[in-house]
Design a binder for these strands. Structure first.
Lengths: 239, 239
DNA sequence: GTCATAGTGTACGAAATCGCACAGTATGTG
DNA sequence: CACATACTGTGCGATTTCGTACACTATGAC
């Protein structure tokens, strides 16, 4: 495909790369569409590519082996990140699934090319390594959120995180879907949604949630939001 | 200090290194004692050293900013791992705390030395990068465990994980402490302990839990244990 | 042996969440 | 327009876990 202009990209990892590092990757990029419901990576299957997200939203899910239990979301990725961290960390498999939750675009790069680029550039390793660190922080924050916060606060957290990554105020989310993301019952989401709507934080329509008052949402989410995001910003600047 | 013999070490990461990679690190190692309750790393403070654990047990804790809420455990590290992954990933700070939970020993290495060694050896990057991946999997599994399993199953999981890392059957654990680790009330741990004891899985004494029937514990923990551990073994072999 | 202290056992109402079932309502398709 | 389908709203008892309080008991220090 035709080569990408670095400055025309939205992916923040790619934008922060030096021209040399970008040049290592750019020739191999292939633009791909992210279709709703598609699995970008499968659990325990070889990862052929890494994906730098340009737009849309990806959920990282972990399987619980427990019969009857659904997959649980451990993290989300948007244009600030990438899917395929295991490649960066030296392996080609992972027990996680990357699910497209909101459609968008990404730049795909073959695993061997990324691997080679990482081995030839210390600074590239720095940027992607720090992104891995920020993901660890994000997952850790999810542990905290699930341990200490009720459904409403977690819903608020999730909405704000999604808004960040989609860069829009209207988010295409069904209750069914949110229940999966938060690991709760579907009616529990309905109730929590009403609460947020009653408080003027959001407007809920069929299959869509619109953010009305981000400040109030943040207030409700208290400490469960923010740490990972601040860490991400800090890490990106370190580059 | 005197140089370490690679084969006399217990740390599994160090043992799996090639002699050249080990040689990069060995001259800088300093043996340190891990004292109960000591913080090996502090949240958001510069990490001066990484620690390859020889014995004992370390908990990785994340602060919830929420007032009144306690720290929550997101992962544990024993002789299979290391503390100070952020250094491997290209930064010197992290919002997590590494708390010594059972005393032991570790080999400390100054961050700049580790950094330099990583930059000069692709294989070393491979081993420690894959360890980072295994930690991500472990934290993800914690998310699942907290979402889908009751206190008893989570207690069983935690006991088995601790047994793995201490290499003993008698574990120095108070209910108070376990309640912190599992993110539940202290009396909840007492009740769960009784259940496991009644089922012949453990013997509980003041400040100590002895594993009697690991098989039954695993059965109770169901899918919440095993995935991360299998992934660790797989990743170590890939080296 | 006495004593302070850390650790453990138990109780009980309150709250959150669950599991399930079913009714209602947008939305798009033919 | 009719209809199937997906999504949302609601109810209710069951269950888990919480918050809190208090009593009891090993254990080690003196």
């Amino acid at each position: 495909m035709s080569q990408q202009q670095q400055t025309s990209l939205r992916n923040r990892l790619l934008r922060v790369l030096g021209p040399n590092d970008f040049g290592l990757l750019a020739p191999a990029f292939e633009q791909v569409s992210l279709t709703l419901g598609h699995h970008l990576t499968e659990a325990n299957q070889p990862l052929g590519h890494a994906y730098f997200i340009e737009s849309g939203l990806i959920s990282l899910l972990a399987d619980t082996v427990r019969p009857g239990a659904n997959r649980v979301e451990i993290g989300i990725v948007g244009f600030e990140g990438m899917v395929g961290l295991p490649i960066v960390l030296g392996t080609r498999r992972s027990p996680h699934v990357a699910l497209v939750q909101a459609e968008g675009r990404a730049l795909a790069i073959p695993a061997p090319v990324l691997d080679e680029a990482l081995n030839s550039s210390r600074t590239l390793r720095g940027v992607l390594g720090r992104y891995a660190q920020s993901l660890i922080v994000q997952v850790g924050q999810t542990v905290c959120a699930n341990a200490d916060f009720n459904i409403e606060a977690r819903l608020a957290r999730w909405i704000v995180m999604t808004q960040d990554r989609l860069g829009r105020d209207d988010l295409p989310l069904t209750h069914e879907f949110l229940s999966l993301m938060l690991g709760v019952r579907r009616p529990g989401v309905t109730t929590a949604t009403h609460m947020l709507e009653g408080a003027g934080m959001i407007r809920a329509q069929r299959g869509r949630i619109t953010v009305l008052d981000r400040g109030k949402l943040l207030e409700l989410a208290e400490g469960s939001y923010g740490g990972a995001e601040a860490e991400y910003e800090r890490l990106l600047e370190e580059g």
